[in-house]
Amino acid sequence: MIAKPTQRLHPKAKKAWQIRGLVGLLFYTLLVGAYFVSRIWLTFLPWWPGLMAGGFFLFVSMISIFVFPAVRMHYWGYDIREEDIDIQSGMIVIKRVLIPMNRVQHVDLEYGPIMRHFNLASLVITTAGSNHKIPAIAQDVALELRKDIARLVYENEDDV
């Protein structure tokens, strides 16, 4: 067995994902609510699709609030080494990706409103053929990592 990557995501990430799940739940509730309200005028609409969709959305939201964040926190991790970047991701299918440092083209920082509130950011690493994401790490760490990667890429350039 290969050891897990040493660096973990930021502990606050769990909370951020849970809030995102809640926002999703709110949105779905509005959607289902709108369906039932519209039945007041559109009387030909049956009640059961609304209930089914509602149940489905509730189920999805519950999972994405109580299950997914914890599972994600458990599996996700990364290492940034002299010559390569190592990311482990996934919840059911666990994926490990190795990106040689001299293949990295650019590194982007991404964050939405929730992530920003928690001072978190995602790091997106782009090679000429693919891109890979390290989600939810502290913003200052992300900035630091980006700088480090840029330096390492520069240093590795010579021995292509």
Binding site: G90, I92, V93, I94, K95, R96, V97, L98, I99, P100, N102, R103, T127, A128, G129, S130, H132, V160
Partner: peptide, 27 residues
């Protein structure tokens, strides 16, 4: 040196059977 990224992955069934997929990106 032409490998853009090397990937390893396994779903729960594969983890149970101790198997893994290997993939790579190339330009």
């Amino acid at each position: 040196h032409h490998i853009q990224a090397l990937t390893f992955q396994a779903n729960p069934l594969q983890r149970w059977r101790k198997l893994k997929d290997v993939g790579l990106y190339v330009l």
